[in-house]
């Protein structure tokens, strides 16, 4: 068992993780946690459940590593798990809150406290958060992929398993919605 896997390739990390190497899997988590955070928090906001979903992403990854055949990049594979779990969480919340409340529970949204020394940066983040949260989840996921991850439309279509035309039309609809919403922010 290696002491450090910092320089190891994804393939080596996957193999070692399948063999039960905790350090190797820890390196995968370290390598991709920010990417997953951008997807999960971009979609759910800084809610108390974002951390849980983030953990679930890597647990699902670990459980499915033996079936990962390396046809897609590991990052794409993780991204798909993150997208699926996040969309499931949004659906679950919608069902749950439609049963018990008319409005999503504010207690569940836990935004970070503004850093008074860095108000400008805080404001930028607030604008991005509010803009994303104002969108329908179908559009939000595409905008989050483009805006926060920097993916091309082709990459976005591949990760979301959607036709390129659908991604482009949803982007155009998202643009219309955002122009309207951002005026009010």
């Amino acid at each position: 068992m290696k002491e450090s896997y910092r320089l190891a390739g994804d393939e080596e990390l996957v193999k070692a993780s399948i063999d039960g190497d905790k350090l190797a899997f820890g390196e995968i988590v370290n390598r991709y946690r920010r990417m997953v955070a951008r997807t999960v928090k971009g979609m759910l906001g800084d809610s108390v459940y974002s951390e849980d979903i983030g953990q679930e992403v890597f647990i699902n990854l670990y459980n499915s590593l033996s079936s990962f055949r390396g046809e897609a990049k590991l990052s794409t594979y993780i991204q798909r798990i993150a997208v699926n779990l996040t969309l499931n969480e949004i659906k679950r919340r919608k069902r749950f809150f439609s049963m018990f409340s008319h409005k999503e529970n504010d207690e569940m949204m836990e935004y970070e406290i503004a850093d008074p020394e860095n108000e400008e940066k805080w404001e930028a983040r607030e604008i991005v958060n509010k803009a994303l949260m104002s969108l329908d989840p179908r559009f939000r996921i595409i905008v989050a992929m483009r805006l926060l991850q920097g993916y091309s439309t082709k990459e976005t279509a591949e990760i979301l398993d959607l036709p390129l035309g659908t991604v482009l039309s949803r982007l155009s609809r998202a643009q219309e919605q955002l122009k309207e919403k951002l005026k009010k922010l």
Partner: peptide, 19 residues
Amino acid sequence: EGVSFDFKNGFTEKVTDRI
């Protein structure tokens, strides 16, 4: 501009411990 996302400190340890 500060629009960066990450999980809280100790995230990696929590995940690996759970697994």
